[in-house]
Design a protein around this nucleic acid. Structure first.
Lengths: 205, 205
DNA sequence: AATTATTTACCTAGCACTAGTTAGGTAAGA
DNA sequence: TCTTACCTAACTAGTGCTAGGTAAATAATT
């Protein structure tokens, strides 16, 4: 009786809860790293108990994987959409990248997630090591292909696309680290613009 | 009696032991991070028990601080010696930097120590947070001063030394991350050389 | 439509470890 | 005799995870 009028706890649907956990876990992994964030805190943040969380993700490692896939999917979509539209000049690509960099500063938790985890996962036995190795390879390939598509006139002959890609990714990561450590003292946008100008200057020489 | 001929356990002197612990701790913090490396393992590696280690460093955090200071001291010496010799061109400085980068690849444990710890210490409550903030500020200042010392003809007017410094440090950190994750796929030297050429080209434009 | 069976969404209790740290001791060297 | 350099033992506070339960939602069967 009294079905729809019942004020009892409104049970969530599976889909909702899973995403909820994923989001809280993102924030906490980002803040404390994988090892530092405890299941207890994640559970608490979600309003569940530890076994409650483990009902959805059979282990902490599974949860981490869930978090990584969750955000990676979104990011890849954005990046590939960004890159594959039309063959652009290197400078255009960097401009787009700059936009992403700046936009990302609005969600420091997410940047932090990746910076903290990439640091931890330098160890080859870390649960997200393979993920990051794969990820960098994939992203590098994406860029290289893009660079190869824009031929001679726009691309200086003696520039190796792989090296350029590695360099761009390094700049992005390195800037984010410095910014996270000391937001007031580091002007990410300015530094990246300088970089863009250097690249553009060099490429069109 | 029987002093020098005694085969009994040769008690170490304080100085020796401390450095010994510091070196083992460096390796283990580098491999597992601060949270991941346990006192037990550090003690074991040194041939002591846990309280044995704590006899020299009152807590794990103190030990971490010891490790950081220990290596920072060495590094600062090297860098400042490198920079302050004579007023060089930007390109020369980058060339020196490249040498350091390559040399450092022989001691991946040490690179890893800093990459892993800098990731962890992005959190403002991490025991080495302040250290890294300080460190980056210090290093940036050192570079900026150096850049300011070499005036007009060598230094392009519209380049902000702070931005350039931030960028250089970002490149170094970012390259190291990619290299640690996937040593075979990332050519640090090539990427850094490309960067140097871009900088040199831009500065002398 | 009512009843039963099954699945889903959790919870409580607790295990099996591991962590850093402390207390208090012993034995060698200064 | 006092300090230094350790050790053994043990405590405390977590850690991820399991076992086993309960109650609601849903599906199946009458």
């Amino acid at each position: 009786m009294a079905k729809s009028t019942s004020p009892a706890k409104p049970k969530r649907v599976r889909r909702d809860r899973k995403d909820e956990i994923l989001e809280k876990a993102t924030a906490l992994f980002g803040e404390y790293g994988f090892q530092g964030a405890t299941l207890a805190r994640i559970a608490e943040a979600t309003g569940l108990t530890e076994p409650g969380v483990l009902h959805y993700f059979p282990s902490k490692v599974h949860l981490l994987q869930g978090v990584l896939e969750y955000h990676d999917r979104k990011e890849v979509e954005r990046y590939s959409g960004m890159l594959q539209k039309e063959k652009k000049s290197v400078f255009e690509i960097l401009k787009l990248h700059e936009g992403v960099l700046i936009e990302e500063q609005k969600t420091p938790g997410l940047i932090q997630l990746f910076v903290v985890l990439v640091g931890e996962s330098v160890r080859s036995d870390h649960p997200s090591h393979d993920f990051f190795v794969e990820r960098y390879r994939r992203v590098r390939e994406m860029y290289v292909e893009q660079f190869l598509r824009m031929n001679q006139p726009r691309f200086r002959r003696d520039v190796n696309p792989e090296e350029l890609t590695t360099l761009i990714l390094a700049v992005v990561d390195g800037l984010q680290i410095q910014w996270l450590l000391d937001p007031q003292k580091v002007d990410v946008q300015a530094a990246f613009e300088l970089f863009s100008k250097m690249v553009a200057g060099y490429m069109s020489e």
